[in-house]
Write a protein that binds this DNA or RNA. Structure first.
Lengths: 136, 136
DNA sequence: CATTACGTTGACGTTAACGTCAACATTTAC
DNA sequence: GTAAATGTTGACGTTAACGTCAACGTAATG
């Protein structure tokens, strides 16, 4: 008994902050397969969930093909164990990558703050004409 | 008195696991400007550092133009304070993004492990023909 | 009922960051 | 000294994930 709300393409587009073109593109790629009313696409809550999965994958840097695999896992009778293990492996790699990115980011922030300090010091020296103490 | 070791293009390529084409491409884009011996490129430790900065930026998802800015910060007389602040802002956004990615990843891992369990349960039931207890 | 908004398909364009290949010069290794 | 490796420039190709039209039909609104 899942909610059987339906959505128009623009509903989903605005909800998720993407364009309708994008949604149709996902369909072209086999990630979505909405019902139709005539030629008009009708999306159901299952489609909405799939879209969510796609966007989550996207944030994590997955390709659409990889997201397609993920969707497959929710789709009964489409769960391939090898594929599943591949995805898990990919996630672990992603975790490693995220750790690397964190450390990269830390270093970069340090560098930037140092550059900022240098800049401010240079500025201070320039405006105060090498004064060491601020006069009272 | 910085180390004045020099490098050939292939030295750097193998050290950093990139292709020579990539290095030349970075030069085309103005990120590197090695000395030349005739037509052959000669890289110095400063160039090597720049390359490191580029690759760090790349890991963090910076564009080459953004890495160019970063290089500029190390290059005296090229430090623009606005640019610096933009970079800091970008780093903060990146941090937020990384946090989002972490949480996305956690959820995804949970999903995958659940899918795995389901799969194994299904498998066990199939092979044991619905036995509940293992015979002694 | 006219206009505006929204929907459709199909084709082609875009961007970043290289890959690939040609055609050639120069080193390096044996 | 000759073959194999490495270097060069220049041009064109590639890929993913859409954007941007065009040309058209349908729906909603005042």
């Amino acid at each position: 008994m899942s909610k059987n709300k339906t959505y128009k393409i623009s509903d989903l587009a605005t909800e998720f902050g993407i364009t309708t073109r994008t949604i149709r593109f996902y369909e072209e790629k086999g990630l979505l397969a909405p019902k139709r009313a005539g030629s008009t696409r009708i999306y159901q809550s299952a489609d909405r969930v799939k879209l969510k999965l796609i966007l989550r994958g996207k944030r994590l840097g997955l390709t659409l093909d990889e997201s397609l695999d993920i969707i497959g896992l929710y789709d009964p009778a489409h769960g391939n164990i090898d594929q599943l293990h591949q995805l898990i492996t990919k996630c672990q790699e992603k975790r490693t990558q995220l750790q690397q990115q964190y450390s990269d980011l830390e270093v970069m922030m340090l560098d930037l703050r140092n550059a900022e300090k240098k800049y401010q010091t240079a500025l201070a020296e320039a405006t105060s004409s090498h004064q060491t103490k601020i006069p009272v």
